[in-house]
Simulated assay, not measured.
Amino acid sequence: MIRDKSQNSLAPESSPKMVAQNFVVDLNKPLVFQVGHLGEAYEEWVHQPIVSKEGPRFFESEFWEFLTRTVWWAIPVIWLPVVCWCISLSVRMGLSCPHIALMVVIGIFVWTLLEYSLHRFLFHIKTKSYWGNTFHYLIHGCHHKHPMDGLRLVFPPAATAILLIPFWNLVKLISTTSTAPALFGGGLLGYVIYDCTHYYLHHGQPKSEVPRDLKKYHLNHHFRIQDKGFGITSSLWDRIFGTLPSSKVEAKSR
């Protein structure tokens, strides 16, 4: 197993692979430009979670460090007005209310597939090169290493704004002028629901059955079977594409 060098964490012993590479991650120093040096050992290291609400430092630069930290409530505060604005554009173009509602629902549904696809095929991509490891750590690896870091559970708004540009152009390409804003707004609303749900699953204390089961489902992905259970807001696409985790009994019997 791999060892993290830190005064504040206990970790397993170093693996032969790590010894051969002669590199140990120092958790007391900025991590982003360290993790690339792990090479093939990165995959093992990043999936050994450190359960602490205090997240690590990413960069020496205060500016870049600031951009990596986002409070959860910034997501609805920033993006819900954009959702409303998009829907209002379709209203002003004369789209009927039932038609707008349909576009919004379709947008949310499409987002759930995008959520699953990004999580499975991009966020869990296998890497071993320096820049591959670094990129993966920035987009998702950090979340698996420090799953309770409350300031890195939602996507930074600056990065979201950049990514929305190609998505908006794609929506305009596949829909009509009047339906595009409502469809895009629905997709963006799906994203807001996803990010707020994701935060709640890590830090909320659900009392009712549905959110409680969803929390167990997601934490199972983090702490037991990390190559299955890619859905966040639901297990729908995991069921469809065969990535639903096995039961606890089955997993223990292997």
Rank of each mutant, 00 (worst) to 15 (best):
K215R: 15
Y116E: 08
K17V: 15
H146Q: 04
A158P: 01
I100T: 01
F123K: 07
A159T: 13
I125T: 13
L170F: 10
P12G: 15
V51L: 13
S129I: 07
R69E: 07
C142N: 13
D26Q: 14
S15V: 12
L214W: 06
N8A: 14
F23C: 11
P56T: 12
W64M: 13
T68P: 02
R69V: 06
P98S: 06
L214A: 08
R254Q: 13
F66K: 14
R92H: 09
K207Y: 07
G39N: 12
K145C: 00
R69D: 05
H218D: 06
P156K: 12
A251R: 15
V19C: 12
T70F: 00
S246F: 09
I232M: 05
F223W: 10
G39R: 14
H144G: 00
F59Y: 10
T177D: 00
S90D: 01
N220F: 05
L10N: 15
D26F: 11
W79T: 05
M148N: 13
L113W: 05
H143I: 05
L114E: 04
Y130S: 03
D149M: 10
V24W: 10
W111Y: 10
D4T: 15
P49Q: 09
V25G: 01
L113I: 07
N169M: 12
Q226D: 08
S208F: 03
R3S: 04
K252C: 00
T70N: 04
K17G: 15
N28G: 15
L214V: 09
I75T: 02
R239F: 04
D149I: 09
C86E: 05
I50N: 11
K126A: 04
S15D: 07
L173N: 11
W111L: 00
G132C: 06
P181K: 10
V77N: 12
A159C: 10
F23G: 12
L183F: 11
F167R: 02
T233M: 07
I193C: 01
H146P: 00
A41F: 00
E115V: 06
A251P: 01
I100F: 00
N28S: 14
W64Q: 08
G242F: 03
I100Y: 00
M148R: 14
N220H: 14
Y200K: 11
V210H: 13
G36R: 03
L31D: 01
L170K: 03
L95G: 00
F123E: 04
T68D: 06
G231V: 11
R3K: 15
F223T: 06
L170Q: 06
G229A: 05
A11V: 14
S246D: 13
S96W: 05
N28R: 08
V46K: 02
A74T: 08
P147V: 05
A158I: 15
D227M: 14
I232G: 02
Q7V: 13
K228P: 00
A182R: 10
F223C: 07
H202T: 09
K207L: 13
S175G: 04
H124M: 09
R224V: 11
H143P: 00
V77W: 08
D4I: 12
T160H: 06
L102T: 10
E62L: 12
T176Q: 07
Y199C: 04
V105S: 02
L95Y: 01
K228N: 06
I240S: 07
A251D: 14
K248G: 01
I139G: 08
F167K: 03
H198K: 08
L151R: 11
A158D: 03
C84V: 15
P211G: 09
K17S: 15
I174C: 05
L188V: 04
S15K: 06
